[in-house]
């Protein structure tokens, strides 16, 4: 075996061997549009939803919640329509997860009112006594930091202008601080008085959760 006395040749050969499978199953699919198809029905996240998604990532929610419903009978029964590739076109990174300590969240959007999420995030055990989910009430005590929202939307290629981002933020703030907001009471229960006129991290996280699986309904309806 000549190559066992030539370390550099050996290393190059090893790299070639390693890159064959990599090229076929990873690099080539990257350049195939069919791997990650796009649909006009699936809209990018708004600035607030994206901030919520970043909080979801920061808190490592993906360690316990998946975001792919598999095409299995009982799974569709439990969560709803199975996941379609188009839904993830704006997901950088993907958040499919690998363990369901908690339920899948790909179809959680609009399943419950915002008030449900305020209560549940604040204290999962107050709603489900034996739940092992950590409480996240402290998210309502943090003002949402939006100073990088524009930069994030630009980096992600959402095509929002500065005024778009500004409008999305002020609009969502107006929604949750409105006197007639249906979840006003639950929100006020968890939000300290000085932040009730502001956007909190919990507001953004709920905005994100409510977006999950929302657009795919339109896509399916058009089919």
């Amino acid at each position: 075996m000549g190559i066992t006395s030539k370390p550099v040749v050996f290393a190059v050969l090893a790299a070639v061997v390693i890159l064959i499978g990599t090229t076929v199953t990873v690099f080539i699919p990257l350049f195939m549009p069919s791997t990650q198809p796009v649909s006009a029905s699936i809209k990018p996240y708004t600035a607030v939803e994206q901030e919520g998604r970043d909080i979801y990532m920061r808190e490592g929610c993906n360690n316990c919640h998946t975001q792919t419903v598999r095409p299995l009978r009982t799974e569709v029964l439990r969560y709803g329509e199975y996941s379609k590739p188009e839904e993830f076109a704006y997901d950088r990174p993907f958040l499919w997860g690998s363990r369901r300590t908690g339920p899948d969240l790909n179809r959680v959007g609009e399943k419950y009112p915002d008030s449900w999420h305020y209560k549940h995030l604040d204290s999962p055990q107050s709603m489900f006594e034996k739940s092992n989910m950590p409480p996240y009430g402290w998210l309502a005590k943090n003002r949402l930091d939006t100073q990088y929202s524009l930069k994030k939307a630009t980096t992600l290629g959402y095509g929002y202008s500065e005024s778009d981002v500004h409008q999305q933020i002020t609009q969502y703030r107006a929604t949750v601080t409105d006197e007639n907001y249906p979840s006003k009471e639950s929100r006020n229960n968890v939000t300290p008085p000085e932040l009730r006129k502001e956007l909190t991290e919990m507001d953004a996280l709920i905005a994100y959760l409510q977006k999950l699986g929302r657009d795919v309904k339109n896509m399916e309806a058009k089919k």
Binding site: L30, Q36, F88, Y90, R92, P93, W96
Partner: peptide, 11 residues
């Protein structure tokens, strides 16, 4: 943010 999106990022 990852340079890859969705299914590609997963792969």
């Amino acid at each position: 943010y990852s340079v890859y999106a969705g299914a590609n990022d997963a792969n």
